[in-house]
Simulated scan of single mutants.
Amino acid sequence: MTLTLVDLTHPLTSGMQIYPGDPEVQIAPATSLADEGVVVHALHLGTHTGTHLDAPSHSIADGATVDRLDIGRLVGPLHLVDVTELAQPGRRIELAQVAAQLERLAAGAIVVFRTDWSKRFGRPEYLEHPYLDVTIAERLLAAGVTVVGVDTLSPDRTDATAASADLPFHDVFLGAGGVIIENLTSLSAVDPARDPWISALPLPFAGLDGSPVRAVAMHRA
């Protein structure tokens, strides 16, 4: 069977957009072919840079760290929920509005919400993204879904002025041992009629709270 691969990952670049307060991204040459005979770059970035994964320890005391996750959970059937018609700045998406698309969820599926907000990535309005009501997290967990993805900065509302984050979706989903994938892109290229799968594998940072991922969707050509 021939597979079509869809890259769902934002490129990592110096100065790229980050969650307010996260470390700035700096990528610079450390060696050169002319001087050392090899090219190596130095990276400075946060664990939640670009398209990335939140491990439970991101917001849950004593939660699992990224290196302790079963990577088998991070490759699986992609259940795409299209909420593009609901995607308005700062809008909360309610369970009742997506309930029909959450029927017949298979345990172990990776549920991804498509808003197409990723088209705004890198611009100030990207922070004014729509977000998911906490009851959606509860519904997913009840169906045996433990990995969820969004093409926004977060499934929770982003308030750049807040002293500390208010993360009810994170608290419920990560609190149950779930995993959240954020800042996906190009979901419009995924055809849900072709039984897509998704892979979003992190680097095994020992004892840390998250990692950038290379997220890829796969479906029949």
Rank of each mutant, 00 (worst) to 15 (best):
A106N: 13
T158E: 10
L105Y: 14
G175A: 04
F121A: 10
E125N: 03
L184W: 04
H170L: 02
H79E: 05
E138K: 15
A109S: 15
R73F: 00
V81Y: 07
I110K: 06
G175Q: 02
V145K: 09
G108V: 06
I181K: 00
P124G: 12
F173E: 03
V81H: 08
L140Q: 08
V134R: 15
E128S: 12
T161F: 10
G90D: 09
P130T: 14
F113H: 06
E182N: 15
T135W: 00
A107E: 14
E182W: 00
L141G: 08
L132P: 00
L105S: 11
F113E: 04
D70Y: 05
D159N: 13
V172L: 01
A100M: 10
V111G: 03
H170M: 01
Y131S: 11
S118K: 00
V147Q: 03
R120Q: 13
G175W: 03
F121V: 07
D156C: 12
Y131M: 03
D116Q: 03
E103M: 10
D171V: 13
G76Q: 09
A106H: 10
L78C: 06
A100V: 08
R73L: 15
G76P: 08
L86E: 11
D82S: 02
G149M: 06
A106P: 08
G122Y: 02
P124S: 07
V111H: 01
L184G: 09
R91G: 11
A107K: 14
T152C: 10
D151W: 09
D133E: 14
A137T: 11
V81N: 10
H129P: 02
A107I: 02
L74R: 05
I110N: 04
A162H: 06
V98G: 11
T161E: 07
R68V: 08
I71D: 14
V98H: 07
E103D: 14
L132Q: 13
R123L: 10
G90A: 03
G178D: 04
S154G: 07
E85Q: 14
V75W: 06
L102K: 09
G76H: 11
I136K: 13
H129Y: 06
A100I: 10
A99N: 07
R123Y: 09
G175S: 05
A96K: 13
A137G: 11
A143P: 09
G108P: 12
E182P: 00
V134C: 03
S118H: 14
G122M: 00
D70S: 12
L174Y: 07
A137P: 04
G90K: 11
D151L: 10
R139L: 01
V172Q: 04
L127F: 15
W117I: 08
R139Y: 04
L127T: 09
G175H: 04
R123N: 09
T84V: 12
R139A: 12
Y126V: 01
F113T: 05
L132V: 11
R114L: 02
A163K: 14
H170P: 06
V147S: 02
L95F: 15
D151K: 04
A87V: 07
L105E: 15
T152Y: 02
K119F: 11
P168L: 00
A160I: 03
A87I: 08
E94V: 12
D70V: 07
A162G: 09
